[in-house]
């Protein structure tokens, strides 16, 4: 059975005409696979490689460079929350927020709760220093977050975001 969904294959095919090389579709392909499967398995890398006429090692070389992509033995939980620890957030409680979250969910940064619901990551500057401390839920920034805000966000993925 194919590891890539029909949707993923279609998105990869749609990206091909945008670039003069097939290899340039590597990041878009990795993104769509991880979005659907919460990781990029070895088999998925082989299938991406075949579609892009590369070796699986080339896909792995790129995927492993970006700490963003997860291997199959370490998939993401249903939600991924990044907590910024860079200087502007540190100055306004970012490290305290990260420590409190890790204590609350009994996991270290990078780990996923036992029920598979939540992955907490430490982030370097998320680009929302005007709203420090800030977090990222999947790809949405949430500014000026307290522990209570993050818990609420973790429980309701569609909660309205705080604007700058």
């Amino acid at each position: 059975m194919s590891e890539l969904s029909e949707n993923a294959k279609q998105i990869i095919a749609e990206h091909l005409p945008r670039y003069p090389s097939k290899q340039a579709v590597t990041l878009p392909a990795l993104h769509i696979v991880q979005q659907e499967r919460r990781c990029v398995s070895n088999k998925a890398m082989e299938e991406i490689a075949e579609l892009l006429e590369l070796s699986p090692a080339q896909i792995n070389d790129t995927a492993s460079f970006y700490g963003f992509f997860r291997t199959e033995d370490n998939p993401l939980g249903q939600k991924r929350i990044w907590v910024c620890r860079s200087l502007p957030c540190m100055l306004r409680g970012g490290e305290e927020l990260l420590a409190a979250l890790c204590e609350k969910y009994h996991i270290a940064p990078g780990e996923t709760t036992a029920d598979g619901k939540l992955t907490i990551e430490l982030a370097e500057c998320l680009g929302a220093c005007d709203g420090a401390p800030c977090i990222l839920l999947e790809d949405e920034l949430h500014l000026r977050c307290s522990l209570e805000d993050v818990e609420r966000i973790a429980n309701e993925p569609n909660a309205p975001t705080k604007k700058a």
């Binding site: 200087l87 502007p88 500057c125 680009g127 929302a128 220093c129």
Partner: peptide, 8 residues
């Protein structure tokens, strides 16, 4: 790719 700490 704006990522320089402090920059938004």
């Amino acid at each position: 790719d704006e990522s320089e700490p402090g920059t938004f």
